[in-house]
Computed example of a mutant assay.
Amino acid sequence: MSTISPLTLASFKPSKKPRMLVVDDEPDNLDLLYRTFRRDFQVLRAESGIEALKVLSSEGEVAVIISDQRMPEMKGTEFLSKTVPDFPDTVRIILTGFTDVEDLVEAINAGQVYRYITKPWDPDELKHVVERASETYDVLKRQNEQLHRAEKQTKLMVTVGQLAAQTMPASDALQFLADGFGQILAADACTLLLSEDRGSSCYGPAEVAAVAASELVAAAISTQTTQSAVNIQAARQSDQAAASDALYASGTECHVVTPIVYQGEPLAVLSLQWDRAYDTVEDVTQLLDVIGPQVALFLKAAML
């Protein structure tokens, strides 16, 4: 499945419609909830908490969960509490026809329940609550994505900073950079290729010769700007030039190349490859454009 970016949180699966899960042991209630929300949501259904956990395990994160409280085997609040560790951003709503005040208050105070709605529920009221819940989920996801990407940037800067604070052979320093960038950006392969054949280092199954011969690398060097390609295998089927690029024969789907430049002097290129198909890698290129000058300073001062 294609996702937005290598920097996107693994639990985030974008969809044209927000996804929600409705859980109730009474089929008539499930059908009613499905009919209520099917126009605006992709609705998943489960007849018990145990079944709902299996649905989440196979389908992944949803924006909203609506669960009945009184169900066999597992109460709604117990089920919802089990979803918190894996899906902390999901917004949870309880439907109850009983006054289980102690259970509900405990769940709400623990941050496991966003709202509770008493039965029989009013469709318009429930729609309004779910709409607000979906908006809350969107805000949480945006905030967490921003924090996640800021964390990646910090880790990359720390990686470069650690080299400046240590003394190690040039080959070890290059390998440290390639490993750090490859792991932090979840790349399948990462190559740091110095200009004028002065050395290289690789993370993952990267082929230095194929990287050096890549047209994307040549474009990054000539323009001194970051270059990227996405959905490469689909492009190879229709583009003869892309098909001839040996670097992509092993199944690479995305490729980003950042030139490492110091005062107009090209020092190296950083090549990152992913075997997964992403819709865009713009945020990766933006991040590398921020970090690139720091790498250039290190290479110029400590190695070249």
Rank of each mutant, 00 (worst) to 15 (best):
M1I: 01
M1G: 11
M1R: 03
T3L: 15
I4H: 02
P6G: 09
T8D: 12
L9H: 10
S11M: 05
F12H: 13
F12R: 13
K13T: 04
K13M: 02
S15N: 10
K16V: 11
P18T: 07
L21F: 04
V22I: 15
D25R: 03
E26N: 15
P27D: 08
D31E: 15
Y34G: 06
R35I: 06
R35K: 11
F37E: 01
F37P: 02
R39P: 01
F41T: 00
Q42Y: 11
V43H: 10
L44G: 01
R45L: 07
R45H: 07
S48T: 10
L56F: 00
L56C: 05
S58N: 09
E61G: 07
A63V: 03
I65G: 07
I66S: 09
R70S: 12
M74R: 07
K75I: 01
K75V: 00
V84D: 02
D89S: 15
L95Q: 05
F98K: 10
D100Y: 13
E102S: 11
D103F: 11
E106M: 04
E106F: 06
Y116F: 14
K119P: 15
W121I: 09
D122Y: 04
P123D: 06
D124P: 03
D124V: 13
E125L: 15
K127I: 05
H128V: 08
V129K: 09
V130H: 08
E131W: 05
E131G: 06
R132I: 08
T136C: 05
Y137G: 07
D138T: 15
K141L: 12
N144K: 15
L147G: 04
R149I: 12
R149D: 01
A150Q: 13
A150C: 03
E151P: 01
E151C: 04
K152D: 02
K155G: 00
V158I: 14
Q162L: 14
Q166E: 08
Q166H: 09
T167D: 14
T167P: 00
M168N: 11
P169T: 08
A170D: 11
A170I: 10
F176G: 01
A178V: 04
F181S: 02
F181L: 04
G182P: 07
Q183S: 12
A187V: 05
D188N: 15
L193N: 02
L193F: 00
L193P: 05
S195V: 08
G199Y: 01
G199I: 00
S200C: 09
S200K: 06
A209T: 08
L216P: 00
A218H: 12
I221Y: 04
S222F: 13
Q224F: 11
T225F: 12
T226W: 09
Q227E: 11
Q227T: 02
N231K: 12
N231A: 10
A235I: 05
A235F: 05
S238N: 06
S238C: 01
Q240Y: 07
A243F: 14
L247H: 00
S250P: 03
H255I: 08
V257E: 02
I260K: 12
V261E: 04
Y262A: 14
E265G: 03
V269M: 02
V269R: 05
Q273P: 00
A277T: 11
D279I: 09
T280F: 14
Q286N: 11
L288D: 03
L288R: 04
G292C: 06
G292I: 08
A296V: 09
F298A: 15
K300R: 13
